[in-house]
């Protein structure tokens, strides 16, 4: 390998990794607020993208609007997941909600397979014809678009969390649910809205995956779910900055191995990375601050 190939693969991976960051943020936000894992999140993200091409099949839409529809559809699905798997299932039992979300993951997957007869569906790409070159080094337009859109989504999320009333509620519930209730914040409403927000992010990520791969397939669901979880582990469960950094890092890492070891070996190294982190840095790259009494 030479340095140019090295930089090229890392750069492409970093850009694509912004999608992993969004997926990781979704898992981590739910965990932060409810201390629960929503394993159906990746499935909801891909399902949202499917809904958007289903809509686009009837009405011709600009690609950007398709993305927006994916986000909204996934937000709706996330709300349904909240109702079905968290609202009416006893939260005190950690296994009950976890198993419910496993069931939901498979249910959503099966619905997608049924609706599409298991055939991959083409997804519209954006700016795929743009290619910025500096000698042998180049940047794919669609990846730049993905990166910029993810960045915008993250900035909007941060604004929401740190500058709005809903953000105060979300952070209060995450940090101290009893005190949050005593301040008049409704746990149920905050949890539901957090699910919708993660759904919006997930739908956007699902659409971007479809756009960058060129097709949507039910086969995307499990890898996205697993990689989202790996991003959470590496970034530290509950940490949004951690999820962003870890998402980019996982993207770069896997793309490096894609370029130099091939597509069939790529995910093996990603899984090994998970074990390395679980053994040496189980709390993630940043360990969270601990309260002093």
């Amino acid at each position: 390998m030479d340095w140019l190939d090295f930089f090229q693969s890392i750069t492409d991976g970093l850009l694509f990794g912004s999608i992993y960051a969004l997926i990781g943020i979704g898992f981590t936000l739910i965990f932060g607020v409810m201390h629960k894992i929503n394993l159906a999140y990746g499935a909801a993200s891909i399902a949202g993208a499917y809904v958007s091409i289903a809509v686009a099949a009837y009405v011709p839409l600009p690609a950007l609007v398709t993305f927006l529809i994916a986000a909204i559809a996934s937000g709706g699905i996330a709300f349904l997941i909240y109702l079905a798997n968290f609202r009416f299932i006893p939260l005190a039992s950690p296994l009950a909600t976890l198993m419910a979300t496993v069931g939901m993951l498979i249910l959503i997957d099966e619905i997608v397979v049924h609706a599409t007869d298991g055939m991959p569906q083409p997804y519209p790409a954006l700016f795929a014809d743009i290619y910025i070159e500096w000698g042998d080094f180049g940047l794919r337009g669609d990846l730049i678009f993905i990166f910029v859109l993810s960045l915008i989504a993250m900035v909007v999320l941060m604004f929401m969390l740190y500058r709005t009333r809903l953000g105060i509620a979300t952070r209060a519930v995450a940090q101290q649910p009893v005190a949050a209730q005593l301040a008049g914040i409704s746990l149920d409403r905050t949890n539901a809205l957090t699910f919708v927000i993660t759904g919006l992010l997930g739908g956007l990520a699902g659409a971007m995956i479809g756009a960058s791969v060129g097709v949507l397939s039910p086969l995307l669901v499990v890898p996205i779910t697993v990689k989202g979880l790996i991003v959470c582990v590496i970034g530290g469960l509950g940490s949004i900055p951690g999820a962003i950094i870890a998402g980019l890092a996982v993207g770069a890492f896997e793309n490096f191995f894609l370029a130099f070891r091939g597509v069939t070996e790529r995910d093996m190294y990603v899984m090994l990375l998970l074990f390395v982190f679980l053994v040496f840095r189980p709390g993630g790259i940043f360990s969270r601050s601990v309260a002093r009494d």
């Binding site: 105060i168 209060a172 940090q175 101290q176 949050a180 005593l182 301040a183 914040i185 601050s289």
Partner: peptide, 14 residues
């Protein structure tokens, strides 16, 4: 039960 990762001002706002 203060909100540990919010500053004092944000705790009051909450």
């Amino acid at each position: 039960l203060v909100f540990p990762d919010m500053n004092v001002h944000e705790n009051l706002v909450a």
